[in-house]
Design a protein around this nucleic acid. Structure first.
Ligand code: MN
Ligand code: MN
Ligand code: ZN
Ligand code: ZN
Lengths: 133, 133
DNA sequence: TCTAAATTTGTAATCATTACAAAAATAAAT
DNA sequence: ATTTATTTTTGTAATGATTACAAATTTAGA
């Protein structure tokens, strides 16, 4: 995947910071917070500002190449995956896993005549690894 | 429903503030924020403090008679309904509707061996009423 | 009544996010 | 190449919800 190309295609000028931020999201796929992104890139981009991270992510969302999840109520997380999928967060190790779900059985009875734009599914508990040790 | 009784049963001393706050949650069933609860009760309880609202809701959650939803990333909402159910928020009028969903089709494929403690389903869009006018 | 414990309250601290204007970088025009 | 305009980045201040904490008040017990 050519990241500069991908940004351009979506009407985003591929500046150095934007490329690095998207690259981080896309390659790690770790649902990071702004702070995590910042801390991981400031070594390579010493002049980086948190404002830039916020600005850039807002732009990515506007242009539709990034999504957000609010699985904890005090921090927004970001995801380069934009297809509809849910998330599981292990309360023990903190890892976040993607989960697939079938929307057909989710809420369809009550939502007749409603226009659905966005769905989030958040599950919390303990992951496989944490349970077996 | 006798609210004082209900609180006592769940190991919560039924003070005046606690009764009024639970009464608000239970009778309105409107998924309010702390601020909404405070503004609606301060007329009747002029000395009420927002701290009390926060403290009381935390206690209710600890004791298991209230649940939270984070359908917007900048505000927590509270719900006297504690059974597992999802929520639909109309982005036009702001109303929040309860929705039922079937967990059997939600994520079961990927979650083998995981221990699920809590699930949240959040849907956004436009409600029936807002669409037809 | 006197004393101890629980509850409520007000205020300050925290922390993620937003607002905003200056600085730096990039592109366009001359 | 130099100037000018536009875009992007940056730093700092403002905002707003939540938490921390200690004083004041209320409630319960001796
Ligand atoms: Mn994801
Ligand atoms: Mn509800
Ligand atoms: Zn784990
Ligand atoms: Zn509506």
């Amino acid at each position: 995947m050519n990241i500069a190309q991908h940004l351009s295609t979506h009407d985003i000028k591929p500046s150095y910071q934007r490329i690095k931020i998207y690259e981080y999201l896309y390659e790690k796929m770790n649902h990071p917070t702004v702070d995590v992104i910042y801390k991981n890139l400031v070594g390579e981009i010493p002049t980086l500002s948190k404002s830039t991270v916020y600005n850039t992510l807002k732009l990515f969302i506007d242009k539709g190449i990034t999504s957000t999840l609010t699985i904890e109520d005090n921090e927004v997380r970001y995801d380069a995956a934009i297809d509809s999928h849910g998330h599981f967060k292990c309360t023990s190790c903190g890892a976040i896993f993607d989960i697939k779900y079938d929307f057909k059985d989710v809420a369809m009875n009550k939502l007749k005549g409603f226009e659905v734009k966005e769905t989030q599914v958040h599950v919390k508990g303990k992951c496989n690894q944490c349970l077996t040790k």
